[in-house]
Amino acid sequence: MDPLRLLVDPLAYPFMVNGLLETALLAVAAGLVGPFVVHRNLTFFAHALAHTVFPALVLAAVLRASPTLGAALGALVTVAAVFGLRRASPEVRDDSAVGITFIGLFALGVVLVGLLRVRSANVAAAVTGNLLGVGPAELATSALLVLALLAAFALLHRPLVLSTFDPLAARALGLPVALLDLVLLAMVAGTAIVGVGAVGVILPVAVLVTPAATAQFWGGPLGRTMLVAALAAGVAGVAGLYIAYYLPVAPAAVLVLALGACFAASALLGPRGLLGRRRTG
């Protein structure tokens, strides 16, 4: 069969086009926010957010409120709880604060599901996400979120970069570091929410972390890291969709495996990877 047709034929279906658009949005978000997540070690926080939004979604379903509103409120509660626990005692470490918030709220969600008898026909979908079932409404929500991310970054990119890579200097210059941290956490939350729609509860952290970690092996300034990360996420997403179109596998799983392969290849062959370093001595 003509290889070009293999690529073009699936585009006749709106679900495929929607999936590709969602992937593109996800890639932009991953490229923009991922490098910050890796550098600030916000990985666990990003993973936690994808889970703590769960009880909020359960409540939103029971109250028939908008799921996006629920997700945003859940993210807000998470950020407040993590900050509160961290400040409560010097003996509570950052990862403990995140971990306790994460597992506590998630368990609350599990208890609520049983208590309120929520019929969760979509438990499976929540685990794997549904990249091929993205509707116009979800696409619009994702587009809005990504636009907000781009706007935040365009307005604040100098202070954000400075407070990430040299917090002491940022503080010395009188930048509101705590406020910038909150903006960054909100950006991570936005990306996590886009990710949950596309790849489910468990895998958004891969979209945030793996492309940015892959880009690290190629070096260069932050802008290039972001481009490489977005490119890796986009290519993996397209590969996931096309493979899932022809073979009966979950697109999110292929996406994440492709990302893992990108990471492994870059760790070996990238200029800063294992072999690259040896070659340059």
Binding site: D95, A206, A253
Partner: peptide, 28 residues
């Protein structure tokens, strides 16, 4: 020492979980 500890955990775990998901969805 390439990455923070949490990033290493995330990359390995998501790959492993995705492999499991792919196997589940492929075998029905």
């Amino acid at each position: 020492g390439w990455l923070g500890g949490d990033a290493s955990i995330a990359i390995v775990f998501t790959s492993a979980f995705a492999l499991g998901l792919a196997m589940i969805s492929a075998t029905g």
